[in-house]
Amino acid sequence: MQEPIVKLQNVTKKIGKRTIIDRLTLDLPLGEVFGFLGPNGSGKTTTIRMMVGLMSLTEGEITIGGHSITKQYEKAIRHVGAIVENPEMYKYLSGYDNLIHYARMIPGITEHRVHEVVKLVGLEGRIRDKVKTYSLGMRQRLGVAQAILHKPQLLILDEPTNGLDPGGIRELRDYLRQLSKEEGIAVFVSSHLLSEMELMCDRVAIIQNGKLIDVRTIRGENAAKANNRVVIEVDRTQGALDVLLAAGVSGVLEGESSIAVDADKESTAAINATLVAAGIKVYGIRAQVKTLEDQFLEVTGGERIG
């Protein structure tokens, strides 16, 4: 496997006595859409701010393309395109002038490239209008445009689907997947919208209270197999649990007349046989495939901000 484009090592951020980010370690390879999932206030934006050098690190190290973001900022940030929080633009300038403004800051961006990007995000019709007349969705598109102007190797997007309509979200999703697969760039997307991450990302990191809780693969063979939960409706729940326990399977009570166990296809059949053999009536069996949302709520404990 190739060297990851981004490496976060023991990244810690303290403000006063509060630890905002606690020893975060992550690697991002090229060609992957990586989701960064967490409830509000969990430290997603703070992490992104540190990745693009807007905030200092209390401890740890972030390297992008092998360059340290703190020590070799100009080299590290050269191949990064980003939107941090909302894409705020100069409202008194036209969309085009905004793009020219950013294009001037990186050598080698031609006017042709600017037009190409404008077309890509579908803003041709309004690009000469002042940004203050834009809707939120159009600003989001302009934000994406400024982030990809210089063909970055790493694209960081903070809540990119904010303000986009369903069509726009789909378009963006397809575009990001295409970017990562065809141009081989790494895309780092933060969101608290779980369903969307499921559709967009290859892998998802879940963060809560500044701590990395889990990294899960969404696409790929492992994803489908694991985490199947089977709910079995029986006549005597306690009896069924006892029988299963004796057979080495631990289950839990699920509602009044059901129990739930973790099992794949084969062991579901075995469990059923065991129960029937023990004289327990089985009224129904259904597989409960966990969505990312369930997983997310599970690992974060459904906890509120506090």
Binding site: V52, G53, L54, Y73, E74, K75, I77, R78, V80, A82, I83, V84, E85, N86, P87, E88, M89, Y90, K91, Y102, M105, I106, G143, Q146
Partner: peptide, 14 residues
């Protein structure tokens, strides 16, 4: 105040 500072600073310039 407009928030544009974020997009201004994340360029290859000190």
């Amino acid at each position: 105040t407009s928030g544009t500072i974020k997009l201004l600073l994340i360029r290859p310039w000190s």
